[in-house]
Simulated scan of single mutants.
Amino acid sequence: MTAVADAFDWGLLEPAGRAGSVVSDDRILDAMVELESAHLAAWSSLIDVENTATLDATALDRDALLRESRRSGVPVVGLAQALRQQGGTLVHQGMTSQDVVDSALMMVSRDALTGARDALRAAGRVFAALAREHRGTPFAVRTLSQEAETTTLGAVIGGWLDVVSSAVETVDVAEFPLQLGGAVGDGEAFARLAGRPDAAAILRRRISAALGLADPGRAWHTDRSPVLAVARAAASICSAGGRVGRDLALLARDGVATPLHGGASSAMPHKKNPVDAVLLVANGLRVSGPVAVLQVASLSYDARPAGEWHAEWQAWRETLRLAAESASLLQNAADDLVIQARRAPATTTTAPRGAREVDAAIARFERLREGDRS
């Protein structure tokens, strides 16, 4: 393996970039090779040919892949050539570049959003505990930036818990389907090469099972609704983080809720900035750009459009990157949160204002499935 010289983005302007490394080029390349490996095994079995070759992503020449990617306009042409040197002529047989890119990005999407879900759940548990603790803490809220009425801090935190629950629910309904259609999406190459009309359906079933992807029972080359569903889940995480981040920044300004470990200022050493809150808001604002690209690119045409599909790659990856970062930031912000407001003494049996909303938010969060999406 050779190192790619002059890496473009190593995180200088991406303070929370480490969490986003789950969608790095290396992870995407690994997913592409995993897809090719699963296809090779399924294809060899289907046509009854023994193939014991192992495809190894670590042995690939990254610089050679970049050169061929620039020449071909897609990363898969050079990849398939290199992998055939490892696994023989059956590698990539019947597939097209879009099969590999779309399926790999779906694998990365599944892993990134599952990890983000875990972080959201961790943040939600903290918010649930704080909402209970401050169920009766009086708090003056604002509407249209002006002081409105007094509710409770628990009700405010219950609102955070609600947007976290909504983001988790959006992830839970997202599906991550395999893409497998061949040159123009009709699967004809598989049928012709295997000598059986059901070859594409069999391969989809076997490969999706091997990779842990959904079997869509079809190719979705120009139906980009699966991509938009993933983007919607990623954007919901960024929106939830941004919503909570705005409140955290304002509460830190007023001294109500502050980070235990704030960020430094280059000019004012006395400051302790709510860094997680600031970055959460920034990610909530940034995600609209790549989501808009994916929405526009979904107006596809032909069996593969000239430019629309290509425009998706980085936009798709960016939505996942921002979602992974936001979930990590939100978990850290929750763990680092210090509430300064004093709780009111329990002097009455009457439930405090907003108590029903607090209880409902907690109950909704606790109904969410624990652990993974299965």
Rank of each mutant, 00 (worst) to 15 (best):
D276A: 14
R62G: 11
R321K: 11
E312D: 02
T152K: 00
K272S: 15
T258C: 09
Q331K: 14
R218W: 01
A344N: 03
W43A: 05
S69K: 08
R206G: 10
D102P: 01
D162K: 13
E188S: 15
P290W: 03
G88Y: 00
E312F: 04
D172E: 11
G182N: 06
R342L: 13
G158V: 02
G185M: 04
A140K: 14
H39I: 05
T350P: 00
M107L: 15
L105A: 07
R142W: 01
A252P: 01
L320Q: 01
R356N: 14
L130W: 01
A200W: 10
L12Y: 13
G307S: 00
S24H: 06
A264Y: 11
V33I: 01
D335F: 12
E68G: 08
A59G: 06
D215T: 04
G263K: 06
L105D: 01
V291S: 15
E169N: 04
A119D: 15
I47D: 03
S208P: 01
L65Y: 01
S374Y: 11
V244G: 06
A240S: 07
D111A: 14
R286Y: 13
A333C: 05
R317F: 04
L248N: 05
V244W: 01
T151D: 03
G159R: 02
G73T: 07
R71P: 05
L280C: 02
H270E: 10
V184S: 11
R367G: 15
S166P: 10
A183N: 08
A128F: 10
G212V: 01
V74T: 12
G241A: 06
E357V: 15
H92M: 00
G371R: 05
N283Q: 01
Q93R: 08
L337V: 13
V74N: 12
L228C: 06
M95F: 00
A231M: 09
V91Q: 05
R67Q: 15
R253Y: 13
A16V: 07
P216D: 05
L79I: 05
A311T: 05
Q98D: 04
A277R: 11
G307K: 00
T150M: 06
L193M: 07
